[in-house]
Simulated assay, not measured.
Amino acid sequence: MDSSAHPEARAETRVLREATDRLLAAVGKLDDKAVAEPSLLPGWTRGHLLTHLSRNADALVNVLQGRSMYASGEAREADINAGASRGAAEQLADLRAGADRLESVMDALTTEQWGATVELRNGVTDSASAIPFRRLVEVELHHVDLGVGYSVDQLPGAFTDRAVEYLARRFSGRADVPALQLRAEDGRSWTTGAEPAAGVARRIVVGTPGALVGWLSGRTPGSGLTADASLPALPPL
Rank of each mutant, 00 (worst) to 15 (best):
V152M: 05
E103N: 09
L180Q: 05
T117K: 15
D2A: 11
L180Y: 06
S54I: 05
R10F: 09
F171D: 04
G214V: 05
L23C: 06
V205I: 12
G43N: 09
V63Q: 03
T192R: 06
D58N: 14
E18W: 08
V35G: 10
L24F: 07
P235G: 09
A116R: 15
L167N: 02
G149W: 01
L53P: 01
V139I: 15
H48N: 14
L225S: 06
G193V: 03
L23F: 09
E8G: 13
L180F: 07
A194R: 07
L167H: 02
L136W: 00
A116G: 03
E140P: 04
Y166I: 03
R17F: 00
A5C: 07
A233P: 02
Q65T: 15
R67S: 04
R170F: 10
R135E: 01
G83D: 12
V205R: 03
L50D: 11
L92A: 14
N81P: 01
R169S: 11
D228N: 15
T125Y: 09
D145M: 02
T110A: 08
N56P: 01
T192W: 00
V205S: 02
S104N: 12
D79Q: 15
T226Q: 09
R67H: 14
A158Q: 13
D153G: 15
P42T: 08
V213R: 00
R203Y: 02
S151C: 04
D186W: 09
A197Q: 13
R121V: 14
G149I: 06
Y150K: 14
R174P: 03
E185L: 14
S39M: 02
R219L: 05
A25S: 13
